[in-house]
Design a protein around this nucleic acid. Structure first.
Lengths: 339, 339
DNA sequence: TAACGATGTGTTAGCGTTGTCATTAAAAGA
DNA sequence: TCTTTTAATGACAACGCTAACACATCGTTA
């Protein structure tokens, strides 16, 4: 007995032996089938089927074969926004026969670093990243490893990297302006994760709009819990600049505000008109239905994936680019201007 | 010049050469650091740092090293329920220094097969699966490849496989009974993906409850679109057995019902008391707040991951087991019995 | 002092695959 | 008939890593 491997998967050699050819011929067939005589191919295919042979991807990668795997690191898979991103990326990748490795960084920079490290070890062909922190080094580490990266949803300023984002500042500016045009004089801006660059831009958009209109800027930088937001809300509603409208910088902020407002008898939009950044599934089931700045989640994810895959397959050494997608102000009831 | 590789990552040999030792010594240090003299270790570590060496996972796997990667296949990453699963699994895996490869099967059996194939090729150590279809062969394929599998959230009857699920029938029975106890005589059951085994069980739980109470069974098997559900709803509300309550078999069904009811002026719970299977983030923001059967998503996912990892690390050849977790009926407003 | 184990290190080989080059057989042209 | 081209296949090495063994050093113990 020559082979005593018991529990192992069949290899190329096993197939070759059974088909009475050399392993390289089998390899050729598996990778495209050129230069193999039809009858030989048939024999080999039969052997593959009989043995249930599956190519060993690890060996392939080791040989320097294009890996056909891209990594995707998102802050939190449990958040439906990022879930949608993951799904969209995955679909694009699969359509171009790439596999996707998705991991969640749990919004922690150290976890992110660890995941990046693992991605590099696994020699992924490319990496899609929604950066979790404000530190640029993780991205530089990837680039130094020679792995193409595309950032999306969030970017870090001053970094040579492909990115796909929405026009955060302008969208927020428009949202705030919408509220201003409806006569609101005191508009609250409810922040969340405001250390992140895109969130900063959203706050800035709001600030530009109110400043331009000569209105006071009322910013709560960091909405954390329902209770904290509630307390802050009560304080503000009794203050001199009692807000009559609010702009929430992301869906977490929106949801916190709504949850805090209800038990405190602040009616929306009667007492407080609300516009939120980020649409979400339930926004139309809420009473009142929430007016939001809708981001093109799927398109953004798809674009990012496409850019990465193009860079991989076309091996284009073009310079890095930033794609900025526009958003849509979806007017529903919570801003008080619909029927 | 011996080495002319330019763009490649540094290897173990590069490190070894720089540190003036053999590659195996470096390997030993990297994998635990036993049997290496402290001073040697220091030299090697310096070299690793200077070169930015990252172990090549592919080579490791090829050598038959335990892969430390598990796969997770969920139906749809964009669904927050499965997103939460993915996040939870991922956290458990990471805590035991396993990496997770997550992919979405898009609820299509053929995509699922393809993803499974890829997982096997990549030689993942184990696989967590939320089966998408009703076919058993995909799972058998995995098992034949010698890869441990754990199914969760859904199982297929009559299959030798570890699984973690909730007691679907009993939970639904209790939910229906709750409605019955509040005097409802005509209770609608709104189904979705009713070909799936767990959904079948939920419908059965409902049917058992109404039959036992001598009430009519009103089942809509397949809720598809808001419009279709709306039309059906109108039809039912004008029929002889006008339902005064509804049980929705999953969150998709719940959301469809709510969206369909609102514009048709069916008030909840006044005209229709509602209990949904699956809790979701927004359930408490809805008006009325939705009463639901809450599944322990996180615990279920964690358990599944733990079982798989135990099987991998302890290499226990124990027989397969099915863990059945219980659910919780979270009573809010939509069922009409709370203040 | 010799024999022994413990410790640190190197040598060799091979995991499954594919690139490179060599080889054979058949077809085409001279 | 003898080259020359083309197609189909094979032999060999190498990718980066580690298991298994081999080999030096040491300090201990009989």
């Amino acid at each position: 007995m020559k082979k005593s491997k018991v529990n192992d998967e069949p290899t190329l050699d096993d197939v070759a032996r059974m088909a009475g050819v050399s392993s390289i011929t089998v390899s050729r067939l598996v990778n495209g089938g050129t230069r193999v005589r039809p009858e030989t191919a048939k024999k080999i295919r039969a052997a593959i089927a009989r043995l249930g042979y599956k190519p060993n991807e690890a060996a392939r990668i080791l040989k320097g074969q294009p890996a056909k795997i891209i990594g995707l690191i998102v802050p939190d898979l449990a958040d439906s926004f990022y879930g949608a991103c993951a799904q969209a990326v995955h679909e694009v990748a699969r359509s171009r026969s790439y596999m996707t490795v998705v991991v969640g960084s749990e919004c922690k920079a150290d976890v992110e670093s660890l995941e990046i490290e693992m991605m590099i070890r696994r020699r992924v062909a490319g990496l899609l990243l929604i950066p979790t922190g404000v530190d640029k080094t993780p991205i530089q580490v990837i680039q130094k490893a020679g792995i193409p990266v595309v950032c999306f949803d969030r970017t870090l300023p001053g970094l040579e990297v492909d990115s796909v984002v929405v026009n955060n500042r302008d969208s927020s500016y428009e949202a705030a302006k919408h509220l201003i045009e409806h006569g609101h004089k005191n508009i609250l801006c409810l922040g969340n994760q405001s250390n992140l660059y895109p969130i900063r831009l959203r706050i800035q958009g709001y600030e530009d709009a109110v400043r331009e209109a000569g209105l006071p800027s009322i910013v709560v930088e960091q909405a954390e819990t329902v209770d904290a937001v509630g307390a802050e809300l009560v304080r503000l509603m009794q203050s001199k600049h009692r807000p009559t409208a609010a702009f929430c910088v992301n869906n977490v902020a929106s949801q916190l505000l709504l949850e805090a407002a209800a038990p405190r008898r602040y009616q929306i939009p009667k007492h407080l008109a609300v516009i939120g950044f980020d649409d979400f599934k339930m926004a139309t089931l809420l009473k009142p239905r929430l007016t939001v700045v809708r981001q093109p989640v799927v398109e953004m994810s798809r674009r990012a994936a496409s850019i990465l895959l193009d860079r991989l397959t076309l091996s284009s050494h073009s310079t890095t680019a930033t794609v900025i997608l526009s958003t849509e102000l979806v007017i529903r009831e919570s801003c008080g201007c619909a029927p």
